[in-house]
């Protein structure tokens, strides 16, 4: 065996990868969670279109995935709050990859400053606009494509905050809760067309959203989210919590009667 051949067989990372299973569009691709999702999908053999607001950041994430996974990665500028542009954006992406579009993952979101959002409605509106209006707008345009195609998957990254309104972040929570309901309805509509709609509800993930707010050891690595979504798409799941135990935490929180819950400080 030659040295070169040995090198190739010594590891499958970086140089070898399954044949392409189609293209996945990731919306809001510059966050750490999106980066982890993108790396996981590239690992599973998908090509990627990364969409987001800052072209330089997108290009950095894309270059990194090309080198780490030898995947085909393209970038597109996309602004979640500019809903007027969404139709044209979707048309452009579809023109580029058409029926090779295997799925879409909505990752963008804005936690905002919950303290400020309580009294400053323009900030509250911004939070609702990104998390709910922006997501439902772009998904509306994409849903009809998938409905016609008759296959594919739509993934929305919502939040455990959307499972019950709490004093500490109910603006964000209500927008994410709205997104969860939107995805639920979409799932009901597209199921018969063979299209999977997956709702992802992350708990504490170690990103800038939780950094300094939650002790780092209580927050899961973003990689966990990427791996969980790839697995859930493969198994055609409807709703997942990441890490998994959040399903049970939120189950308990949802079960608390309102007359008890309103007195708590969660």
């Amino acid at each position: 065996m030659t040295g070169q051949a040995k090198l190739r067989s010594s590891s499958d990372r970086g140089t070898q990868r399954a044949p392409s299973s189609g293209t996945v569009l990731i919306l809001g691709a510059t966050s750490q969670i999106a980066r982890a999702i993108a790396l996981s999908f590239a690992n599973a053999g998908y090509d990627l279109v990364l969409a987001g607001r800052t072209p330089d950041e997108l290009e950095r994430v894309a270059a990194d995935i090309r080198i780490r996974r030898a995947a085909d990665v393209r970038t597109e500028t996309f602004d979640a709050s500019d809903t007027e542009s969404h139709q044209e954006f979707v048309a452009r992406v579809l023109a580029d990859c058409g029926h090779a579009l295997a799925g879409v993952i909505v990752v963008f979101g804005l936690l905002g400053d919950s303290e400020r959002a309580r009294s400053d409605f323009s900030h509250a509106e911004e939070i609702i606009r990104i998390n709910y209006v922006g997501a439902s707008s772009v998904l509306t345009h994409l849903a009809s494509h998938f409905e016609q195609a008759g296959h594919g998957f739509i993934v929305g990254v919502s939040s455990v905050a959307g499972d019950r309104g709490r004093a500490s972040n109910y603006i964000y929570g209500s927008a994410k809760g709205g997104l969860s309901l939107f995805l639920q309805g979409l799932r009901n509509r597209l199921h018969s067309r063979g299209v999977q709609v997956l709702t992802v509800k992350p708990g504490f993930i170690d990103t800038r959203m939780t950094f300094g707010e939650v002790p780092t050891r209580l927050a899961a690595d973003p990689e966990v989210v990427g791996k969980a979504i790839v697995k859930a798409v493969k198994k055609r799941k409807d709703v997942i919590y990441v890490p998994w135990f959040w399903r049970y935490i939120m189950w308990v929180i949802r079960l608390l009667p309102e007359f008890v819950f309103k007195r708590t400080n969660l």
């Binding site: 070169q4 590891s11 499958d12 990372r13 970086g14 080198i67």
Partner: peptide, 8 residues
């Protein structure tokens, strides 16, 4: 090392 040893 992880990504470039396989590339030589």
């Amino acid at each position: 090392l992880e990504y470039f040893i396989p590339r030589g």
